[in-house]
Structures are given as C-alpha cells and as structure tokens.
Amino acid sequence: MTRTDLPTEPAPVTEWVVTGEPIEDIRDRRRRRAAMRKPFTSILRHVLLIAAAALMLYPVIWMVVSSLRPNELIFREPGIILDSFEVSNYTDGWNALSYPFNVYLLNSAIVVIGSIIGNLVSCSLAAYAFARLEFAGKKWWFAIMLVTIMLPIHVVIVPQYILFSQLGWVNTFLPLIVPKLLATDAFFIFLMVQFIRGIPRELDEAARIDGAGHPRIFAQIILPLMVPALATTTIFTFIWTWNDFFSQLIFLTKPSLYTVPLALNAFQDSQSSTDFGQLFAMSVVALLPIFLIFLFGQKYLIKGIATTGIK
C-alpha cells in the first residue's frame, strides 16, 4: 500500500526485528515536547484514555473476580473488591462435566500443537518458493493463494465433512490438523513471503556459490533468519486454534474429545440457571492461555497485524 510494500522494493529485515524504530523515536519526542507545552490537554487525554480502557476491561476483570465469589453473590455485586476468596468454583467446575477439565485442555493442546507444527512446516516451504524461486505460472498461483485467504470456510465445510467422515476421521483430531499440514492457512504463507522478501538475496547467492541447493539455502539461511515470522505464525495459530469453535463443533462430537471451547459451551448448556461461579471459573481457565500469549508475545502480535492485517 505504501512504497516499501511493493514487491519490487522489499522492506528491510531490521524494520521487523527492531521494535523501537529510531525515526519514530525522534518523531515521538518532538510531538511529546509539543504536547508538554499544553499540560492540561495532555492530562485530559490520559484521563479519558484510562477511563475508556477501564470501561473496556471491566467486564473481564469482573468475570475473574466473580469466579472467586460464592455463587449467590455474583449477580448482586457489581464491584470488583473481594471479601472472601472462593476457590471451590475452580475445584468444582474442574470436575463438573463428564470428564475433568484437564482432558479438554489436553485435547485443545493437541489440536493447537499439531496446527502450529503444520503451519510452520508447510507455510514456510510454500513461502520460500513464492519469495525466492521462479516457476511457470507463479503469478497466478500467487494470486490464487491470496484469494484463498479470504475464502469463507463454509463453502468447503460440507464436502470436507463428507470426505473426512468417509475416511473415518470424524471424532478424531485429524480433520483439524491435517489441513494445516497442507498449508491451508494461506495467511501465514503471505506473512512469510513478505518477510523472506526482506532478507537480502546476497546471502542466498553466496550460499549458492558455495554449492548449496535450495533445500540447504532454505534450511540453513532462510529459516534461521525468519524466526520472527515463525514466531508470529506460532502465536497467531495458537490463538486462532485455541479460540476456534466452528470446525471443532463440526468434527468433534464425542465428549471425551471435546476441546476447551466445546466443553465450555456444553457447560453453559447444562448449567443454564445455576453455578455461574463455576462457569466463570472455567471461562477464566479457557482465557488464561490467550492472556499469557498476549503478555509474552505482544511484540510479534502487533508486528504481525500491522504487517499483514490479520486479526
């Protein structure tokens, strides 16, 4: 969209890896100095922003606090100050369904880890070809890849279901993992192509002169340099798969195979009027991994969406 993004002028690698770009720092400092001249508007802005942030996060904080409250207090207490500390919601909620919650956490973990491995391997291979190799019909294949990013899953889900049920894969994790091994999350191909274009070609050339073929250039030059893109892919795959509900709902119907979202949904259905403390407690358990990923992977998350516009 801007000059640096045209295929012919790849952005330098450093722009990705370094977080605080020096140019921005100067700009920020200049603006900050300008802002300091008007302390009142600056303070007002902070007050409004903090109020907005508090308003946005309040429901989530309230849920965390409520998960530690006795059930009868939850809907009488809009505040977030705890008088008592009720851990029983967690211990009881953990075992409230037909299987303990660790079963669902493990199922989710299997799907997530399988998807991450699948995306890392298959998307990086495809990205290398698109970014570095010349081949017949490249332009068209690339365009097709970009279009598949925007394709709604619904146009393929019915035949996929038929295919996987004929293979006997329904109620296994395979329908959720195998497509990732086949690079169907084209978003990540695109993200990696963008990144590889920023790696200087001189490095490939030097390796080629030393007699390295494409597999070696890929494995020994490109892969180690594209770690930031691989990290972004890992993080986004984690979040999307952990949150995914639609395809898990379709392919997993046996309670022993339920993932965390399916278990929560079942929990809500079974407890339609009571035990909100337990329901909230297990919701907090479900959100915790996302929150941790957010805390530790922010840099890659922000870079990732800023670069490709993924969610």
Binding site: V60, N243, F245, L264, Q268, F280, S283, A286, L287, K311
Partner: peptide
C-alpha cells in the same frame, strides 16, 4: 472470538 467471552 472465544466461547468464554460469549459466555460472559
């Protein structure tokens, strides 16, 4: 996008 937030 999570089920947990929809529950909330």
């Amino acid at each position: 996008a999570s089920v947990a937030i929809a529950v909330l």
